Amino acid sequence: MIAGVPADSRASAIAIMGPTASGKTAFALELAERLGGEIVSVDSALVYRGLDIGAAKPTAEERRGIPHHLIDVREAWQPYSAAEFAAEARAAIAGICDRGKLPILAGGTGLYFHALLRGLAPMPDADPELRARIVADARVRGWTSLHAELAQVDPAAAARIHTTDAQRIQRALEVFRLTGIPISVWQRDAALRTGLPLRVLKLVLAPADRAVLHQRIERRFDAMLEAGFLDEVRALRAVPQLQSHPAPLELPALRAVGYRQAWEYLDGATSVDEFRDRAIFATRQLAKRQLTWLRGQLDALIFDPVLDAARLHAAVHAFLPTAGPASGGGPRAA
């Protein structure tokens, strides 16, 4: 502590971020065991019940009795916004701190991390009727046409939303039609943002060699297939609410990588080899987008989960000196 400068008295938390298949889950479990922590999942697929194998959701055995939060909180047909996640995650974190435990925030969903750590501008709640009209319009005109419409009313939002990102196009148009105010205006008002009132160490796990990450992604997907991923998707297809949904693949849960490709394969749209190749490619593209977002987190520390294991643990010890040094090796790939 610098003389005359008060110590930061806020509670502490550790955020473990990284692209898919980088080893976040294993490292979060290791820290939770060693530091007496509880894990808050920051993953937009793990919130859904029934998305287990394909979402790499840790099993009850893998959790080893460590409390986990924000897993299995919605059904696959139910919407779930970043604002809802942030509110529920903050409530979970408050409970963890009240119990004298360390919150460990682990996941790869950038929007969820942003909403949780920095806050989101308050916007109107979702309007199911208006959303249904926008989706129906998209079926006739296509999402590219609706993106062009968005560019007319909110060029700033359209510039950062891809023409095929149906969920974000839908939300941006919904907000504008409900309020007459572009979503970019709502989002840029810094006065409406409230950050997480904790002292947070941001750790990014990312293999230095992109080829290593690609190999992990491929191996993990093949392991998912062997574990019964397609049977899991067949079970989802049998859920009455998904069977009766007019466009199930437009639901956020089924836009998770792997699930859309498996659904289309079970529809007979692709061969099994095409399904595997498309799912692995989609996962690699997700990892690329995650890495792009993570590189913009200037206050985060980036480590190769294997090559930088000693430095990674040293960073934790420097942040929480009373935790002591690590007793084991580096994090395993998850």
Rank of each mutant, 00 (worst) to 15 (best):
A136E: 15
R295V: 15
A126C: 11
S81D: 06
P103Q: 06
L294S: 04
W263D: 03
V257P: 12
T163I: 13
D277R: 13
F176G: 00
C97W: 11
V153M: 04
A269I: 03
R216S: 00
R219P: 11
G36A: 02
A7D: 13
I217E: 03
G37E: 01
E232R: 08
V233K: 02
D127I: 08
R276T: 04
E264Y: 02
E264P: 03
A45V: 04
R289V: 02
R34M: 07
G324H: 07
I14W: 03
G330A: 06
I280P: 00
L266P: 08
A166Q: 06
L105T: 00
L266K: 11
A256D: 01
G37I: 00
G54Y: 02
R289I: 03
E88T: 10
I66P: 03
V47K: 03
I134Q: 00
A91T: 14
A94D: 15
S271L: 05
Y265G: 02
A211G: 14
G107D: 05
E62A: 13
I181C: 10
P305R: 05
P197M: 05
R311D: 15
L291D: 10
G50C: 07
A190I: 14
T194I: 13
C97V: 15
I169N: 05
E75Y: 05
D43R: 05
A121S: 15
L105G: 02
A333D: 05
T179R: 03
A87G: 04
H68Y: 11
A28R: 08
L294P: 01
H69E: 07
F281H: 11
A7E: 14
A326M: 08
R118T: 10
V73Q: 01
P79E: 11
L205S: 03
L201M: 08
P252R: 06
P182I: 04
R49V: 13
G119W: 06
P248A: 10
Q170R: 13
P19M: 09
E264L: 12
R171M: 12
F229E: 04
L120K: 03
F281K: 10
